[in-house]
Every structure is written in C-alpha cells, then in structure tokens.
Simulated assay, not measured.
Amino acid sequence: MNPFYSVTDKQDTRQAQRLNSTTIAVLTIYGLVVLMIFGSRLVSPSLGGISQLMNVLYLSSFLVICAFGQGLVILVRGLDLSVASMITLGGVLSTTFMQGTNEGLYFIIPGILLISALVGVISGLGVTHLSIPPFIMTMAMGLIVYSVCLGFTEGTPRGFPAPMLNAFMQNKVLGVALPILLMLVFILIFTILQSYSAFGRKLNAVGNNPDAANIAGIAVKRMTISAYAISAACSALAGVLLAAYANGATLRMGDDYLLPSIAAVVVGGSSILGGRGSFLGTVGGALLLTTLSSMLSALGVGQGWKTILEGIVILVALIMLREQIFTGLQSMLKKPN
C-alpha cells in the first residue's frame, strides 16, 4: 500500500468534511433567517410580511457590502477595525465633492474608492512589512481617518449627495428597490471572486497556512495587502450609499457597522482564525443580524435590551454553528442501527 496515497486520501476526506460543515452552516443560517422573518408574525401582525422582507433586504445591503471586505481580511488571519471610519470617510467625501449635483459623479465615486483603497494599502503594509498586529494597525488607521474627517469638516459635514444617487436609493424596478438589485449583483460577482477564482483560492491558501502558501509561490504579503485594500474600498462604498440614503453624512454614521461586520462574517460560518470563509455565509449572517435588529426595533425594545438580545442571539448562533456539532451529527447519522 502506498503511504502517500493514504495521507492524501485522509487530507481529501478532512477537506470534504469541512466543506460539508460549511455548507450545512450556510443553510442553517438562511433557515434561521426565514424562520425569524415569518415567525415574527406570531409576535406582531405587522411583521412577517413581504414588506418586512424587502425592508430587511434593503437595510442589510449596507452591511453586506462592508462585511465582504471584512470577511476577506478575516480570511487572511486579520481584522479590520477601521470599517466605521472608512464608512464615514466615504460619506463625507461623497457629500463634499458632489455638493448636491450630478456633475462629475462618474469620476467622484471611483476617486473615493481609490482613496479608500490606498488607506487600506497602508494598513496592509503595516501588518505585513512592519509586523504590527492587525487590530492595532487598523484601529490606528481608523482613528487617523476619523480625525482627518473631523478636522476637514470642522465637526459638521456639509454638502449633499448627487440627486442621481438619491433617486437610485429610492426608485424601484418591478417593485424591487434598486439597492436590493445592486446587492444581488454584488453577491453574485463577489461570491465568484471569493469562492471560484484564482484570487479567492490564493486568499484561502494564505489564511490556511502562510508559510506553505509562500513555498507554493503565492505572494503572501501582496495578497494580504489586497484584502485590506478591498475592505477599505467596500466600507467607503457603503458610506457613499448610506449618505445617499440619509441625504447627508455624519461623523458617526459608520459606528453601527463595525461590530456587525465582524459578527456577520463569524456567524456566517467563517473561522475568526482565518483560512475558512464563505461570502454566501456572510450574507446570511448579515441578513440574520438585520432581521433581528428590525424585529426588536418594531417591537419598541430599548437600545440597552436590544443590544443584550442581539448579543445572546449571536452567541447562540455561534454555538449552534460550531464545526464540532456538525461533525458529531454526521457521525451519529453514519452509525448503523
């Protein structure tokens, strides 16, 4: 018997089991979302309908966008704590540059994303070349960006988004809001990017074992920096859309998205230690968190109790989605009667 074949076979088996566990976790998350939405009608007749579903999809679009970038950073064993500041930066720059007109719109948005990506590159360089822990580097960059926004606006962001962006956030096609359609396109494109492209496979390899990835010829530092750049750009894009949704920017507009962006990734089945992640799972986590927040707000739950209940639900979801549970269930199902 060839010993190398035995080792390879065991590795393939473990990989298949991990894939099955990830798939089950993703399906479980979406099942919880459906159960929560339609089960909420038992709590209040005004909940559980199509209108609530559309509202959840609309509100979750902002979180989905910034959570994608956070998920890539977590995938390569990092953590991006500058999300809130980058959302604020995107919102402040969009209202400042647009000044309530459509002039130059198609140049302003790419410019904002480029500026934000450069901030992410600086974070990535600090992590990879200076060996600064990711949470410290990104927290420091977040403080710097927020301080720049504070000084630039003198405490009060001015200007308004372009009318075209306002119209985009309000208009519908066949009864479906355009931001929801944008989110669906975003999910399709970036699911392919993360799970089925060479770029996504390299990120997974870096997260699984950076040393092995380096030996295999993968530019580990470059891939890590790209994850931070994409995360910063995604957060800024969410800020641009939030400013258009609220018809203005504030300095604290990103505060409600930092922890949820991390929670959505982890609840969606990704490993906080890196090397395993699914964007579809992250989307499910974002939908779950948004659904829960929407339900509690509709029921008039105070902010304190709302935060407590959200924390409990996240904790329960994480316990339910532990890989050991799925492995145990698979073992039980395989046992002969």
Results as ranks from 00 to 15, higher is better:
L289E: 12
T22N: 08
G48R: 01
T88K: 03
M183V: 09
F326M: 01
T327C: 00
A117F: 05
Q194M: 15
R41V: 11
M169A: 09
V145W: 00
P133R: 12
A216L: 15
P210C: 06
N214D: 15
G311W: 06
P133T: 11
G248V: 01
M295P: 08
A244R: 00
N55K: 06
V56Y: 01
L188H: 07
V267E: 00
N247E: 12
G100V: 15
S331N: 13
R77I: 11
R322D: 14
I308K: 03
A238Y: 08
A67M: 05
N247H: 09
G274M: 15
V26R: 00
L89C: 03
Y245P: 00
L19N: 11
G274H: 13
K334A: 14
L53G: 04
G175P: 07
G248K: 06
G78S: 12
P163M: 11
M169P: 09
L32W: 10
I225D: 00
M86P: 05
F186T: 02
G277V: 04
V56W: 07
N171R: 09
G217L: 04
Q170A: 13
L203C: 05
S131H: 14
P110K: 02
D80R: 04
G285P: 04
G281D: 14
P110T: 01
T88H: 02
A263T: 09
T282V: 15
I65K: 01
N55Q: 11
L93W: 11
M141D: 08
K334S: 14
Q17G: 03
G31C: 05
Y245E: 08
M139G: 11
Q170N: 08
R158N: 06
G175Q: 11
I108E: 12
L174D: 01
A216R: 07
K172P: 00
S60F: 09
L288R: 14
